[in-house]
Every structure is written in C-alpha cells, then in structure tokens.
Amino acid sequence: MTGDLDRYDYLDGNAAAGPLSEIFAIDVLSARGRCAACGRTDAMATARLLPHSHGLLLRCPGCSAILLRLVDTGHSVCLDLHGLSFLELRRQQNGSQPNPPQPT
C-alpha cells in the first residue's frame, strides 16, 4: 500500500504555475529544461511536483533529481536551479491568444 501512495502522491509541474508566476514574467513551466543529472529535456510542466513540501520542488520524471527548488521566506524568494543545465524560454507567441490577466 505504501508503494502505491508513493507512486501517486505528486502533481504535474504545471500546478506550480501560481507561485512561479509571482517571480517570472514568462511561464517557466512551458520552457524546456534539461536535467543536469540525466540529460532528459522536456517542458518543465512535465516535472513532478511534490505537494506538502517545505518549499516548492520540481523533480525530473526520468531520474527524480531536483530540477528546481523555491522557498518563499516572506521577505525573499530563494531559487535553486542547479539541477538544470539548460532552459529554453520562448517569447510570447503573438496573435491568437487572449491577453494575460491584468487585474487592477
């Protein structure tokens, strides 16, 4: 039973879009990142997000190494990206999409 729990208790990286939106102007989760440990390269949204953790941890779905670690200390945000050896951020595509939210 514990093995199952282990297998199912995680979310997609995409679920971290909220906290990450507070520090990045571009959606980092759509960016392609390369795992420094195993070389797997895919959208950051496909990483595994472990809920209930002390900080936000995105792990490689291939080798489970930590790709991104974020701790919000209230007065600062600490970001550890040493698990990524490469990140490709795409510029916002034009046309077709509605504007991003601009709450006043």
């Binding site: 997609d12 990286g13 995409n14 879009a17 909220g18 990450l20 939106s21 507070e22 959606d27 989760l29 759509s30 959208a43 949204a45 595509q93 046309g95 077709s96 999409q97 939210p101």
Partner: peptide, 14 residues
C-alpha cells in the same frame, strides 16, 4: 485568487 496561470495545459486555437 491568484491567476489564471499556466501556459502548458492549454488548448491553443491556432
């Protein structure tokens, strides 16, 4: 409320 957020799990009309 924070968001709407997320640019990955989206359908693009293009």
């Amino acid at each position: 409320v924070r968001g709407p957020v997320g640019g990955w799990f989206v359908w693009d009309p293009a």
